[in-house]
């Protein structure tokens, strides 16, 4: 049982800021704690930047979700970029092909409750994250 989703394009630096702002708004609305709000917004910032820098742009979808016990927020980052060839390597702290710190993907995974990645070389990457209220 899910509410309506909100979608944003991710094609510029400015869009990454918009994603952060939307995620913050929804995180407050589902009543995540302050620390959890901070974690999900930070994770969203890392993954939206990846969508832009590595995926060549794409789209983000933010949804309020519920299960029997809890409310939460689900965010999907989708691009049609080159995909991730070696996923294990990409999820290793400190590994980067883009000149960054190599913490975006691995760090974002630590900040959320659920992390799912679907990628294929040449086809693109879709990452889904969920953060539940405690």
């Amino acid at each position: 049982m899910n509410d309506e989703s909100q979608r944003l394009p991710v094609d510029t630096d400015r869009d990454v800021v918009r994603v952060r702002q939307l995620v913050r708004t929804v995180a407050v609305a589902v009543k995540l704690s302050l620390v959890d709000q901070t974690k999900i917004v930070t994770a969203a910032s890392e993954l939206a930047r990846n969508t832009l820098v590595y995926g060549g742009g794409g789209e983000v979808e933010v949804t309020r979700v519920h299960n029997e016990r809890r409310a939460g927020i689900r965010i999907v980052f989708a691009d049609q970029g080159p995909g991730i060839v070696d996923l294990d390597l990409a999820l290793t702290d400190g590994y980067t092909t883009g000149g960054g710190l190599g913490l975006g993907l691995s760090g974002a995974r630590r900040l959320v409750d659920e992390f799912d990645i679907d990628t294929e070389a040449g086809k693109g990457t879709t990452i889904t994250i969920v953060k539940w209220c405690r």
């Binding site: 901070t38 913490l103 760090g107 630590r110 900040l111």
Partner: peptide, 14 residues
């Protein structure tokens, strides 16, 4: 730095 930011940064690995 806010406390929640500090917690998040360290968990992020930074």
């Amino acid at each position: 730095m806010r406390p929640a930011v500090a917690i998040t940064l360290v968990e992020l690995g930074l």
